[in-house]
Design a protein around this nucleic acid. Sequence first.
RNA 1: GCGGAUGUGGCGGAAUUGGUAGACGCGCACGGUUCAGGUCCGUGUGGAGGUAACUCUGUGGAGGUUCGAGUCCUCUCAUCCGCACCA
Length: 813
Amino acid sequence: MPDHRYDASEIEPRWQAVWADEHTWEVSNDAGRDRPRSYVLEMLPYPSGEPHIGHLKVYSVGDAIAHFRRRRGAEVLHPMGYDAFGLPAENHAIATGVHPRVSTNASIASFQRQFREWGISIDWSRELATSDPRYYCWTQWIFLQLFKAGLADRREAAVNWCPHDQTVLANEQVIDGRCERCGHEVEIRQLEQWFFRITDYAERLLDDLDTIDWPEHVKTMQRNWIGRSEGASVTFHQDDFDIDYPVFTTRPDTLFGATFFVMAPEHPDVLRLAAGTPHEQAVRDYVNHAMVASNAERGAMDKAKTGVPLGRSVTNPVNAEQIPMFVADYVLMEYGTGAIMAVPAHDERDFDFAQAHGLEIRRVIDGGELPYPGDGPLTNSGTDFDGLPNREARIRIVAALEAADRGRGAINFRLRDWLVSRQRYWGCPIPVIHCPSCGIVAVPEDELPVLLPEVEDYAPKGRSPLAAAEDWVNTTCPTCGRPAKRETDTMDTFVDSSWYFLRYCDARNETAAWDPAVLAEWMPVDQYIGGVEHAILHLMYARFFTKALADLGHLSFQEPFAALFTQGMITRDGAKMSKSRGNVVSPQAIVERYGADTARSYILFIGPVEQDADWSDDGVEGVHRFLSRLWRAAAEVAESTEPAAPPSQPQGADLELLRKAHWAIAKVTHDLDGRFAFNTAISAVIELVNDCYRLRSQVSAGSLRFALASAASLIFPFAPHVGADAYQLLTGERVWEEPWPVADPALLERDTYELVCQVNGKLRDRIQVASGLGEEELEQLALAAPNVREHIAGREITKVIVVPGKLVNVVVR
RNA sequence: GCGGAUGUGGCGGAAUUGGUAGACGCGCACGGUUCAGGUCCGUGUGGAGGUAACUCUGUGGAGGUUCGAGUCCUCUCAUCCGCACCA
């Protein structure tokens, strides 16, 4: 027997060259009208250093889906690009002096090379990088559309400031009071910044989750982040200053139990209210202390509720009671109106505060021990409401408030506007000009892109490094022509990645961001794939962009990603891979040692792709062994036999092997069609190859050839090079040009099967029976089975359950 | 605290609608091939008992529904993730 050796290092470059030379995976926007279109997209990589194992996983998943859909007849758009602006490249520049463009481009080159070496079927004609002026030109254009529509505005607000990265951060980028990127504790500063009004879309972002096919846990995370609360806005009047203070409450039914009123330390009126009262100095001290306290310090929930009186009172609109005002840091300026009505009897936090400060706790809902947050009839709430169930009382009280013009039903959201300015260099310039006489003026669209200027020093100094590029900053006002200055902030990189999936559809359009007619052909993305770590940030922002651009008439759909799949992380020794732990597995090392097909297949075989999985070097060997067995068998059969068809009336081992092949076709198809069960799909192909080996000396050459070609065809989406090579050896055809195989129903059926015989639910025997027998016959056969007879001997049969095709259960007493 | 997930052999995991628990891979044991190691080709492999046929037991724990539960229900424990004083 000739010595066939599976050599991935010879096979893989050979097929990669074919696909590159022939532009096999490119799709056109005008051709292919006879085929359904499918857009399969993995989240674009952030090009920093080398690709890691997570990249290998996400693109292995996406490529398997892309290949499967192509061979099932779809025209598949499967593009690639790079999220190329961002802090790491800039921090690297500060440390080394290397321009971020240089290091980013080097990294992109490495990603490109490895994606080709992995054999990912990418349409390279649509490749993009978000740092390319041909791309960010249109990021700026989108900014201007939002600006003109009033969805982008500049305003002063309390913002998160990272003292290390010297920039502001979006709320979503603050994790446990710390900067998502560098881990430094975040400070709160009052600064004028650019915002996108994502809160205008809160309701729609929430409602439309019901229209998309996303994992439930991702939808839940988004729902929680949006944080919709239904309740009422209730207005309390402050007599000394004649000011109305509206508050938001989810419990208007407890309004008669409001015994005090609390404002956040950041509330702009706090100092003014306390002025001239004996509490003025105490309030000043308290507010100063609260302002410098860290988020983490204030956020500790078990901390005692602190606060001081303001020396003023407000009027409760339902009973005209004067209730004292306080300032306390358990009230947040960012949520609601920055002030609350406190109902200590029915809210745990208000209860704690009342106890600590000796304030009245008045029960207004009958029920359990105080503080009691549950339902019950009202009490101490006046003759109009006492005795009513609180849910009904809530409606009536809101109606009464509305009639008196002191409140109304209201909905509040936790979601806040998206802060998009960054005082950093390596990002997309914000295309506006500040004119002393005209104010903020948009850069005219025909002057886009506003190119990122070259600077000497990238180091952040509390203002954008762009401010140092004086020739660039100083310009003229597009409106009045007088001297003006450019905006020096750059955009959050999440802006760049909130629309890249649109650009892929029409990537070479030089006159517009896209042609809406072209977009309508591909969008929305049919299958989006990425890490669950983007469940909130990227996915929420992309949805917001899509809705806003649709409202402005640029898009004809409401949701960017019709279906989403989130893959789990690859760990090593149970821990996230990191350089500091020294447990990093480099994809390149695995590819060099075993080949890309092994690396890709192993990652999909290791377990369900949506779950985290632990890397095992021994497991890789096992998958490599399997691919090697498949290829060697194909090479041997191709060399030692002539092509032949399987027998038309197979018997014995031929029949067994052909059945196995058709079973595998059905199994893999089922596992890929709508599911992402790659691990069991690969298992099925392994079983088929195992049977080829087991039966090879007993079957006809035609059957063996067919079984092995089927295995090659089925493994192709996961291991494209070895699949293509084995398939060509056996059939002379190119597997990716072949339709996906279809199982022959006649070979999926069996003429006999193993009937499970149970007594009282316990397995007692298995017998071979003919397919299609009726319940009556099956019952008789089961009762006659030797071990069944033994277990029912001398006992009374009370019932017999027959499930044709499966089992018979005899119930005895 | 709220929300979401996950618990199955020595390990990763499998189990369509409630119907043979442990597919497939790793590891391990044994046999064959090989000068030898590795490779390669087989056989076996949840635990306990038994020469064996077979029996008992077994899916984090405790109950329940059912002829039958890894799967459904109730309670509970553990681990992980997200949000966290959200009024």
